[in-house]
Nucleic acid binder design. Structure first.
Lengths: 188, 188
DNA sequence: AGCAAGGGAGAACGGACGTTCTCGACTGGC
DNA sequence: GCCAGTCGAGAACGTCCGTTCTCCCTTGCT
């Protein structure tokens, strides 16, 4: 097994375990066991747990946003429809087995006060999501697209938290209905 | 120092430390140091860390909801105004020094998968908040008060998460504006 | 005064965890 | 065949943490 394969296997294991059980609850030894990578190589690829955590979050950020953007760009029929398609994607995500909320909200709550690097990646994820939503609302004929995007972001985050804690994916429907109302009001 | 005083001092220290730095990052020894209660007494009052955590969350839940309800009941001029007063209270909370998001969202992300007791208290808090909001919307002349309450809950949770991660209390304003729109639409 | 009960300070214990070290096996180049 | 380098398995190390134990002091009762 070469270094690259070890890296991806480590990131795969890290994502599975950290996301499912929380970061502090998962020791480096279970990452080793679940990845099949030796401890020596693990520390060659990631010189500390924090760097592994950071890499896990960065990769998840990229994949998560790409998946959302792909869904929206292929499913949305019109610019007016795109913001609503976000919530359809959310519903599918919430219904996935093993869904446990937003990895960035979770890691921020757990380590945000302790690890500035983790807090930075978490904030970067939310900033990127906000920027994405602003891109969607900028294509609409509304008075204040940024304000609308921030309202949609609030709904996205709220729905994610509620779905995680209640285990009920229908939080996405509630948020979508609210988004529809906000969108209609803004398009007046 | 008697047992009751020790208990409140322990809960005070627990709330300060657990909320500020996260639960797993705070050892029982710092609770002892910050409370001035001996380790022996600590374990008389709370036989394990988990029971202390649970008690901390329960007390915070009660106080948090009482504070919100008091603010809303004294400030809201009308039933139509009450849901919006929630977001004014949120703004004041977000602006408090040391605000670090919702203790229940944070503890759920950190321990929800590991500790069923903590997860239970967290869910109970959110259920109680939802019930409170449903009480507010039930007093309105709207077609589906429960659906409106769930939309408001989504905004509350989203604003809290965003304010925590960005450090910007104006997330409450964004959510309030959205709530105003949703309320106006429902009252049509 | 003497004694029992309880309390405080902190040492001690047992386990977990992040990280490093050891050792034996394997590989590729000469 | 031999050497240098690399690797995997796992032991080892140091630290931290939840929890318990020890020891001594105080206090209140007789």
């Amino acid at each position: 097994m070469d270094r690259d394969e070890a890296t991806t296997r480590l990131l795969d294991a890290a994502e599975r375990e950290f996301y499912e059980r929380g970061i502090q609850s998962v020791g480096m030894d279970v990452i080793r066991a679940r990845s099949g990578v030796s401890l020596k190589r693990l520390y060659q690829c990631f010189p500390s747990k924090e760097t592994l955590v950071e890499a896990y979050l960065r990769r998840r950020d990229e994949r998560w946003r790409r998946s959302l953007a792909e869904h929206v760009s292929t499913r949305a029929l019109s610019a007016e429809d795109a913001p609503l398609a976000v919530f359809d994607w959310l519903h599918a995500w919430f219904a996935e087995e093993g869904f446990r909320g937003c990895a960035f909200i979770n890691s921020f709550g757990e380590l945000g006060a302790t690890s500035p690097r983790v807090a930075g990646v978490d904030r970067a994820h939310k900033d990127a999501l906000r920027a994405y939503l602003r891109g969607l609302t900028a294509a609409l004929d509304v008075a204040d697209p940024d304000a609308l995007a921030d309202q949609l972001l609030t709904l996205v985050e709220g729905a994610t938290v509620i779905a995680a804690m209640s285990g009920d994916p229908s939080a996405a429907h509630t948020a979508k209905a609210a988004a529809k109302t906000l969108l209609a009001a803004a398009l007046q």
